[in-house]
């Protein structure tokens, strides 16, 4: 599975806003490039990113070829309760990766 790096606080105060930063290994081949012999290089990108917090969706994004290789996405969420934040990336050629982080809310 593709390597991912997640940065999220392990603990947070109830009702505070936390930032979640994510990086994932992916070439993000645009589909707009040609080889020197003139052959089109097929598109191979991450198309969707979803964040769920104890099962409820809190953020979602659709990505296009203009997102740089090894996509970095940072977003915020409200620390509501202790539990699991799940991050999911899907894309061309059946690409799929999931990561989970645990958070304690006090």
């Amino acid at each position: 599975m593709a390597r991912a790096l997640i940065n999220a606080p392990a603990r947070a105060r109830r009702g505070s806003v936390i930032e979640i930063k994510t990086l994932i290994s992916h070439i993000m081949e645009t589909g707009f490039r040609y080889t020197q012999t003139g052959q089109a290089v097929p598109r191979d990108i991450v198309t969707d990113f979803t964040a769920t917090y104890n099962g409820e969706e809190v953020f979602r994004a659709r990505l296009y070829p203009a997102i740089a290789a090894n996509p970095f996405i940072s977003f915020h969420t409200l620390a509501t309760e202790s539990g699991t934040i799940e991050l999911k990336w899907t894309g061309d050629n059946g690409f799929s990766a999931t990561e989970q982080v645990r958070i304690t809310v006090e």
């Binding site: 996509p71 970095f72 969420t77």
Partner: peptide
């Protein structure tokens, strides 16, 4: 949107009250 890329779309994000703060960061190609 980036107007002089081969395709203008860069990212479309969906947010809600649970997002807490409307601020996102990405790295893009120009």
């Amino acid at each position: 949107f980036a107007e002089r890329n081969p395709q203008p779309y860069v990212i479309s994000a969906t947010l809600g009250p649970r997002t807490g703060r409307a601020s996102i960061s990405v790295r893009m190609r120009l």
